[in-house]
Write a protein that binds this DNA or RNA. Structure first.
Length: 881
DNA sequence: CTATTCACG
DNA sequence: ACGTACGTGAATAGT
């Protein structure tokens, strides 16, 4: 069995992969789709070929011998989009880390390197496989040199394979003759000129009978058709030069010892780190973890001590208290505390099992004691609070929240992410070590995995803390972190702990009423459609509406017809079924998401304890999950009614406080526009005064229509104005929308300057900031893609405003929370909905709390325009809001 | 696992 | 010419 050599045309395959794999970016905004596709092709080929040798050739950015022959020669290097260009060094990093040689030779193209090595390999008795997206290489094919051309479509890679016989079968000429064919017909991609009026068909026919351009010319009088004869006669010189350009050089001066290309273990630790850094998660599975761990252990030995006795625990806590810094994280499963992972120095982690004498109460008390003496780093402080409910302290440092501030675009802040991003180390993620198994099962059955997990949980926060602090200070976010985000963790925890009381039976009754309506609508829709189908399926609904009932309105989405509310709304007058579908959707949504959905979250105590996430949004807002309590219906009466089932504890009332037009007030402050500031200082109705000033109408003559338009413009400004968006919203032409915007900017020139400045700043710095220094990176601003760049520009205009509003609300929450406790009140914040706080308030505290809210919220910031707060009370959320 | 739809600020 | 308003989360269908 002869040995096998695989040679890859790097740029060509990267190019194929780039256009074949859908857009893919990692959390730092780096495009990785081409790298991903390249590696998919590489691994597939390796698996199929099982070669002993592997190398990848790249073109070099330098003129080649072809440029010297022909001035207009472009070579295979077409202008590359930025998104692809930035991936060239990435794939080289990966290949280098895998130990695969990268071949480059100034003056030669990758094709020439491939051709040269293929011939040498063949001469040495090897089977050679060339991988390229380019058919030029077919001229190299022999019985022992196979050209493979991969195609990626929808994630599946298929390759066309050409040995000598396959070329003859497919093209009717031998590989050597293929050059002549190409020379005759030309190649626009390489700018190789062809002979005029000779196309692919004629070229193939000519070469097939005469074998070469030279021989055809020798028999020029016999050449048919006459058109081709004339062309060849006149352009023989050109044809010969083209042949030289198209011919791949098989004698390039490449120095390569095949031994250097001998295929070793691709799955090195370095490769793992590079892929981990690029977040090419699907390839990480291929790496043998145990081998990797062995390598890791050679580097650093960290000991994990399990402590389950009282005296050892006492000793541990005594010495831990003497350290300047410790790290801690709870180990839990299904809300059940199993133990604490604690790091006291760079290479020691202890696990304190929550069992026997080491009760939850004991661990809580010990941790509280530690928090008085020393700094405590943790991956997720709120998680610790949830399980141990330790008291508030300024000594905690939440590494997850810190990492979120430094880059809020990532989708997770787990210990493996932090290790990779802040100390450049790759450690196995929780999912790799534990999978879906229960933690205690892994502890028993795979103790090494369990140890690694517990160790990293504390070791990583301990190690990255310094880096995080340093970077927060360097980016001007230390204050934001220590004065806003850290204290907020405790307020959010108290909100989650408090939860909100729900009338279970009333909610069930609401659900039953909806069920009746859903069923009724179903029957009416089936009758109108003439048959039964799944109304919840946009696919089936689209077929009924547009194929069977032939409603006008056309396609939209990539998967089929769009049946969204705005499309259906326009079709209402066309067919009675449309209105029924819209109604059905309303009822079905309310029933599934709210009536049934919320019911599943009611705890033993009759309350819903949702989660408020602090590290999700790109702008600094918090988000709410399981359930989402920030999107409870309010706009439509039918949905709004559900708020009646949210009720305060016996003896309490709800007090609801919301900021009035906070984002527009922030716009006035941040832009410093004199006119806007003046307008908002006095006037209560912000949209009305905008209408009056922009449309030059006295305040008391502003019509509802005019106010609506002004309101839409105001929204547009905050969202990052575009004429298209505004025209869509107001159902007016883009021209009219453009005029509105122009008028607005004429009225408030400071706003225009401000928004332009935000975009310019974003482009320059790569990020924009809020009043409190919070950053939002905007990688899209660098994109060459118009769509993406425009998106980036809108984000640059919106994020500082939305983000500052989020900052102000966070400050307000901390202030309210503190004031409640310093005034000795039992009232508590139970919900935050971006610009609204809902409090559960003992009846006797009502007046005091209403005043407190007004005061603490309006004074959360001192801006150029006052912040206004509406405070209401009621005995359910419906009446309080 | 992704796309569509729709609830909120 | 391009083809969208900014920020979220949950339910459902269908690959």
């Amino acid at each position: 069995m002869s040995e096998k050599l695989v040679l890859i045309d790097g740029h060509s395959i990267l190019n194929r992969a780039f256009y074949g794999v859908p857009e893919l970016t990692n959390s730092s905004g780096l495009h990785t789709n081409a790298v991903y596709g390249f590696l998919n092709i590489l691994f597939k080929i390796l698996e199929e070929e099982q070669p002993q040798y592997l190398a990848v050739a790249f073109d070099v950015k330098a003129p080649t011998f072809r440029h010297k022959m022909y001035d207009a020669y472009k070579g295979t290097r077409k202008p590359m989009p930025q998104e692809l260009h930035e991936q060239v060094p990435l794939i080289k990093d990966v290949l280098t880390a895998c130990g695969v040689p990268i071949l480059e030779k100034p003056g030669y193209e990758a094709d020439d390197i491939l051709g040269t090595l293929a011939r040498r390999g063949e001469a040495a008795g090897m089977e050679v496989t060339l991988v390229s997206g380019d058919r030029d290489l077919l001229q190299i094919a022999t019985d022992h040199i196979c050209i493979r051309i991969p195609k990626t479509r929808g994630g599946v890679t298929v390759t066309e394979n050409y040995r000598k016989e396959d070329v003859i079968e497919a093209y009717g000429v031998t590989p050597t003759e293929f050059i002549d064919v190409k020379a005759l017909m030309g190649d626009t991609s390489d700018n190789i000129p062809g002979v005029p009026s000779i196309g692919e068909k004629t070229a193939t026919a000519l070469i097939s009978s005469y074998k070469s351009i030279e021989n055809a010319y020798a028999h020029i009088d016999e050449v048919k058709p006459p058109r081709a004869q004339k062309a060849l006669r006149e352009h023989y010189d050109l044809a010969q030069m083209s042949k030289k350009l198209a011919a791949i050089c098989t004698e390039a001066p490449v120095e390569m010892d095949f031994e250097a290309a001998r295929l070793g273990n691709l799955y090195t630790k370095e490769a793992y780190e590079v892929m981990n850094r690029l977040e090419l998660k699907s390839f990480l599975k291929r790496f043998d973890l145990s081998a990797m761990e062995q390598q890791a252990e050679e580097k650093k030995e960290i000991t994990l001590t399990v402590i389950d006795g009282l005296s050892e625990a006492e000793g541990f806590f005594r010495s831990a208290g003497e350290q300047p810094l410790i790290a801690v994280q709870t180990v839990a499963d299904g809300g059940q505390l199993l133990g604490l992972a604690m790091a006291v120095d760079e290479d020691t982690v202890s696990y304190l099992a929550c069992a026997g004498f080491l009760t939850e109460a004991y661990l809580k008390e010990k941790l509280e004691e530690l928090a008085e003496k020393t700094q405590i780093a943790a991956l997720d402080v709120k998680e610790i609070l949830k399980l141990l409910d330790v008291k508030e302290s300024e000594h905690y440092f939440d590494a997850g929240v810190a990492a979120y501030l430094l880059n809020p675009l990532k989708n997770s802040y787990t210990y493996d992410d932090l290790a990779r991003d802040f100390i450049g180390e790759s450690v196995p993620a929780r999912a790799e070590l534990l999978g879906k198994s229960r933690v205690e099962d892994v502890r028993e059955k795979e103790p090494e995995n369990w140890q690694r997990y517990v160790m990293n949980l504390a070791h990583v926060p301990f190690t990255v803390r310094g880096k995080l602090e340093e970077q927060l200070k360097a980016t001007g976010m230390w204050n934001l972190f220590t004065k806003i985000e850290m204290p907020l963790i405790f307020s959010l925890h108290r909100m989650e702990q408090a939860g909100i009381r729900v009338e279970k039976e009333a909610l069930a009754e609401y659900g039953r009423e909806l069920a009746v309506k859903v069923t009724a609508m179903e029957q009416e829709i089936y009758a109108l459609a003439g048959r039964e189908f799944n109304i919840n399926s946009p696919k089936q609904l689209g077929e009924i509406l547009f194929d069977e009932l032939h409603l006008p309105g056309a396609k939209k989405t990539k998967t089929g017809y769009s049946t969204s509310a705005d499309v259906l709304e326009k079709l209402k007058p066309v067919h009675p079924i449309v209105e029924k579908v819209l109604e059905y959707r309303t009822y079905a949504k309310l029933k599934s998401t709210y009536a049934d959905g919320l019911a599943g979250y009611i705890s033993e105590d009759g309350r819903i304890h949702g989660t408020f996430n602090q590290t999700i949004t790109a702008t600094g807002r918090i988000s709410s999950t399981e359930p989402n309590l920030q999107n409870i219906p309010v706009r439509m009466e039918l949905g709004r009614a559900i708020r009646r089932v949210f009720v305060p504890e016996e003896g309490c009332v709800f007090v609801d406080a919301d900021y009035s037009q906070i984002e527009l007030r922030i716009l006035a402050h941040m832009s410093g526009d004199k006119q806007l500031i003046e307008a908002y200082r006095e006037e209560q109705d912000i949209h009305r005064i905008t209408a009056s000033q922009v449309f030059h109408v006295p305040l008391d003559e502003v019509t509802p229509q005019l106010r609506r338009n002004a309101k839409a413009v105001n929204f547009g400004i905050v969202y990052g104005i575009s004429a298209f968006g505004l025209s869509e919203d107001l159902s007016i032409t883009r021209k009219e929308a453009g005029e509105y915007i122009q008028k607005y900017f004429e009225t408030y020139p400071g706003v225009k300057t401000f928004l332009d400045r935000l975009v310019a700043e974003g482009k320059e710095q790569g990020y924009v900031t809020t009043v409190y220094g919070r950053r939002r990176p905007i990688p899209e601003l660098k994109s060459n893609n118009f769509m993406q760049r425009s998106f980036g520009e809108r984000v640059a205009m919106n994020s500082p405003i939305q983000g500052t509003a989020a900052d102000v609300m966070k400050i307000a929450m901390i202030r309210v929370d503190r004031a409640l406790r310093t005034e000795g009140l039992r009232s508590r914040i139970i919900l935050q909905v971006h610009d609204e706080l809902l409090l559960e308030v003992p009846g006797e505290e009502k007046d005091q709390v209403m005043e407190l809210l007004e005061r603490e919220m309006t004074h959360a910031a001192d801006f150029a325009v006052p912040l206004e707060v509406d405070v209401n009370c009621g005995d359910n959320w419906y009446t309080a809001h």
